[in-house]
């Protein structure tokens, strides 16, 4: 097990190095940051001096070495536009993004699992058809549109919830619901199909024939086996929630990392974009390592050696 964890961590580090390489070079493909950042009153000489000040006059490979050497110590440089360390800005926003993704995941799971299980137990029933329809709507509905509709209903009409920001605990309700709906829709379908597959297994029939009640069969026997694919997809979805929260963060003005990254991309603030990208990747890799470890906890038959 320890060897497995060590291997996964090494793989994670390799992935991070690749991401750092991509983060560094891809942001430069978008063009010269000085051209975008400098005002129109800057002439070419002034722009060149700015390039020298920010180190863009050096060869790309040298710039990358400087970047990666500093990045391992957590120094991503000073954000061009806020004049604060990029790392500080990212950490400031990270909590809000994790909180939002966490609550959205909880909502997603708490809706998806019951829906999927009940649907699988009552295949082709009205409930099953109804949940299929809801899942289709949930998957097809753009989060941007859903968010705005929620604001209009809960904030404008009912005046119940704040339309923006993260000032009040209730402010998380709408953005997390918006994000959780898509996840719930997808996971509920996956739970249903995973459960259907397991429910046809011999050991489930055996459990029933022993006279166990449905609840015991489902939660003690079937669910454990169905959880593996669900957890795999949940891990990926959680990663998607961390990275894909950009739209929802913009609609609800949620002060998260996604919005910081979009703002920074718009003004070519490479220091912040690189730091944010690496943090997204780090979060994603960490989540997936945890999920891998949880496989063994859920199903002791899984051995990593």
């Amino acid at each position: 097990m320890q060897q497995f964890i060590a291997t996964r961590i090494v793989q994670g580090i390799i992935t991070l190095i690749i991401v750092s390489f991509l983060a560094f070079f891809l942001v430069r493909l978008k063009g010269d940051p000085v051209d975008i950042t400098a005002p129109p009153t800057f002439n070419e000489d002034q722009k060149q001096r700015l390039r020298e000040l920010w180190g863009f006059d050096k060869p790309l490979a040298e710039q990358y070495v400087i970047f990666i050497t500093r990045a391992v110590t957590g120094d991503f440089g000073i954000a061009y536009l806020s004049k604060r360390p990029a790392m500080e800005l990212v950490i400031e926003r990270l909590g809000a993004t994790w909180l939002l993704a966490g609550v959205a995941s909880l909502i997603g799971l708490s809706v998806a699992l019951p829906l999927g299980i009940i649907s699988s137990l009552n295949r082709n029933s009205f409930f099953d058809l109804g949940s299929t329809m809801l899942a289709s709507i949930g998957t097809a509905m753009p989060s941007f549109w859903l968010g705005l509709m929620m604001i209009i209903f809960f904030s404008v009409r009912l005046r119940l919830l704040p339309a923006f920001g993260a000032l009040d605990p209730s402010a998380i309700i709408m953005p997390s619901l918006t994000m959780g709906v898509g996840m719930a829709a997808y996971l509920s379908r996956l739970t249903r199909s995973a459960m259907l597959e397991v429910l046809n297994e011999d050991y489930v029939r055996t459990a029933y024939s022993k006279g166990l009640i449905t609840r015991t069969v489902v939660f003690r026997h079937a669910m454990k086996n169905a959880l593996i694919p669900i957890m795999t997809v949940f891990g990926l979805q959680l990663g998607w929630l961390l990275g894909g929260s950009v739209v929802v963060e913009s609609v609800f003005s949620w002060p998260g990392l996604g919005r910081l990254m979009i703002d920074s991309i718009g003004v070519r603030d490479n220091t912040v974009v690189q730091a944010a990208l690496l943090f997204f990747s780090l979060s994603f890799i960490t989540i997936n390592i945890i999920i891998d470890i949880l496989y063994a906890v859920i199903d002791p038959r899984i051995r990593f050696d």
């Binding site: 705005l148 904030s155 005046r159 339309a163 920001g165 609800f252």
Partner: peptide, 18 residues
């Protein structure tokens, strides 16, 4: 208060929050 989306800005005004 930074609210990037114009529709969300208008909604916040109608909700009395800006």
């Amino acid at each position: 208060q930074v609210i990037p989306e114009q529709s969300a800005q208008v909604a916040a005004l109608l909700a009395g929050q800006v």
